[in-house]
Computed example of a mutant assay.
Amino acid sequence: MSTQKDLPAALSHAFEKAIYRVHSPQGDIDVRIGQFNRTLNQLLQQETSRGAAILTACNPGAQICSRAFNDAVQESLLRSLQKLDLRWWPAVNLDPNGKWPDEPSLLVLDISLQQARWQARLFKQLAFVYIPLDGKPALHDVQQRLPASNQAQLNSTTSL
């Protein structure tokens, strides 16, 4: 199920066509939206993962940022996941057309859809990939308007 209805069509298309390369303990696995990946599914089952998400903190709002900024926010994402005691494997989001820079990301194991959405929202991402138990990756958009009470938490979480 893809829920990118609020994303501009060109951006939604780019996210849908991207290659999400996971650096698993068994080697690189290319994940594509809507395509079941047997190797990834088997690894997630071995890890007894209830679901997984591919998350990044890089280039918030689909605005290209400096490497230094992206490194800093990606480190903040790592700290946020560590606080939640979540496991992860490194990954990278790739544009098959080479028009968008490679983005470091993480495949986060044993994360719920709601937790993944919250992390993506905290780091001002427009979308993220979620892989449910059936193993079919889906793109999910992220509504970025937070209630005022959550804005302070967002600012403190992403401050560098």
Rank of each mutant, 00 (worst) to 15 (best):
D95M: 09
P96K: 10
P96L: 14
P96V: 14
P96M: 13
N97G: 12
N97A: 15
N97W: 09
N97C: 12
N97F: 12
N97Y: 09
N97M: 09
G98I: 09
G98S: 09
K99A: 15
K99D: 15
K99T: 11
K99M: 10
K99N: 13
W100M: 03
W100C: 03
P101K: 00
D102W: 14
D102I: 14
D102V: 15
D102H: 14
D102L: 14
E103W: 00
E103T: 02
E103K: 00
P104H: 07
P104I: 04
S105Y: 02
S105D: 04
L106F: 06
L106A: 04
L106C: 04
L107N: 00
L107S: 01
L107W: 03
V108K: 00
V108L: 03
L109Q: 04
D110A: 12
D110V: 13
D110M: 13
D110L: 11
D110E: 14
I111V: 09
I111R: 01
I111W: 00
I111P: 00
S112E: 05
L113W: 10
L113N: 08
Q114A: 15
Q114P: 12
Q114Y: 14
Q114C: 12
Q115L: 08
Q115A: 06
A116V: 04
A116E: 00
R117F: 08
R117A: 07
R117N: 10
W118K: 09
W118H: 14
Q119C: 07
A120F: 05
A120G: 04
A120K: 01
R121M: 06
R121H: 11
R121W: 08
L122G: 01
L122T: 02
F123W: 00
F123Y: 05
F123E: 01
F123L: 05
K124W: 04
K124I: 02
K124S: 03
K124Q: 06
K124D: 02
Q125R: 06
Q125E: 05
A127V: 04
A127T: 03
V129W: 03
Y130M: 07
Y130Q: 06
I131Y: 02
I131T: 01
I131P: 01
P132A: 12
P132V: 07
L133M: 11
D134H: 12
D134C: 10
D134I: 09
D134N: 15
G135H: 07
G135K: 05
G135E: 03
K136E: 04
P137E: 03
P137K: 01
P137D: 03
P137G: 05
A138L: 11
A138E: 14
A138R: 14
A138Y: 12
L139N: 04
H140V: 07
H140W: 09
H140D: 08
H140Q: 11
D141A: 12
D141G: 08
V142S: 03
Q143N: 10
Q143W: 13
Q143G: 11
Q144F: 05
Q144Y: 05
Q144A: 02
Q144R: 06
Q144M: 08
Q144D: 06
R145P: 07
L146D: 05
P147I: 06
P147K: 11
S149M: 12
N150T: 08
Q151S: 12
Q151I: 12
A152S: 12
A152T: 08
Q153G: 11
L154K: 08
L154N: 03
L154H: 11
N155W: 10
S156Y: 13
S156R: 15
S156T: 15
T157F: 03
